[in-house]
């Protein structure tokens, strides 16, 4: 196993290189395209490096399109939804982990099954509901809907994280005069912080991926989020400004990639902890 000959090493290296290229080339292509001029895009479509490096596509997207509005809306809705998801999931996850509750296992399975429900189906009735109460084109409807993306799985994740915190720590705090709520806030929450970050990240990434809710629940351009913004701007156009579209794509990908680079170990822990053991 550990003793390997040179040809095996080279083979592994080549496979690694091929897989790395598969993963990265589309991203590299996106970045370079965003730095090209429109003329070059059509003149030399196969050229990887831009001949003339320019930020004009970024300038056009930021200054002459509704992109900044869409971007701000996406950030507002996703941040609010992630925060609410973390709050609800932490509270519920704590009690699911710590107390014996009748029907708990059925409840937990039901919650997990919810994560598998297709948004499209839920959307039919919620659309009618939001429409009747004049909530289309509001942050309220969007935030409430965006909680659907992460909450069920988050309850499971938080429950797992609380399970990993030793009960004795809390008991000690309660003997010292803390009530349960105080013990949760002062002792458990600091220890679960990595878990809460993982849940927030999971909820944020899930929401950032949504198209159908945002597309359906908003009609006014002022309330539009990025994904429907892209679809309604670029789909079906005869001539697409690909360099601008790729510039927008880079800017939309940047937050998730940055957040992920800094916080990935929390998310990876959260996702793999339960699935690997046992």
């Amino acid at each position: 196993m550990r003793r390997r000959n040179a040809s095996a090493k080279i083979f592994i290296g080549l496979v690694a290189l091929a897989l790395l290229s598969f993963a990265l080339l589309p991203i590299v292509w996106m970045c370079f395209t965003s730095l090209k001029t429109r003329a070059e895009l059509f003149g030399a479509p196969g050229r990887l490096w831009p001949k003339v490096w320019t930020f004009s596509a970024y300038r056009d997207v930021l200054a002459h399109s509704a992109f900044p509005t869409y971007f701000a809306n996406s950030v507002i809705v996703n941040v609010l939804a992630s925060l609410i998801t973390v709050l609800l999931a932490t509270l519920a996850g704590y009690s699911f982990a710590r107390f014996r509750i009748r029907g708990k296992s059925v409840l937990m399975l039901g919650i997990l099954a919810m994560q598998m429900f297709p948004s499209t189906v839920l959307l039919i009735a919620l659309y009618v509901f939001f429409r009747r109460f004049d909530l289309l084109n509001t942050y309220t409807a969007l935030v409430l809907s965006y909680i659907t993306h992460g909450l069920p799985f988050s309850v499971w994740m938080m429950r797992g994280f609380v399970d990993a915190v030793p009960v004795e720590v809390e008991e000690a705090a309660m003997i010292d005069g803390c009530r349960r709520g105080g013990a949760l806030l002062r002792v458990v929450v600091p220890m679960m912080l990595p878990g809460m970050i993982a849940v927030a990240l999971f909820a944020f990434l899930a929401g950032w991926n949504d198209l159908i809710w945002a597309l359906t629940l908003t009609t006014s351009p002022a309330m539009r989020l990025i994904p429907p913004g892209f679809v309604l701007t670029y789909v079906g156009q005869f001539e697409t400004y690909w360099n601008q579209l790729m510039a927008g794509s880079v800017m939309v990908s940047a937050p998730t990639i940055l957040v992920f680079v800094f916080l990935q170990r929390y998310l990876v822990q959260g996702l793999t902890a339960g699935a690997v053991k046992g």
Binding site: A23, L24, I226, S249
Partner: peptide, 14 residues
């Protein structure tokens, strides 16, 4: 590992 993970965090609409 970080690099090959990137396609997973690129937003789906992108």
């Amino acid at each position: 590992r970080g690099l090959v993970l990137l396609p997973w965090v690129v937003p789906q609409v992108v």
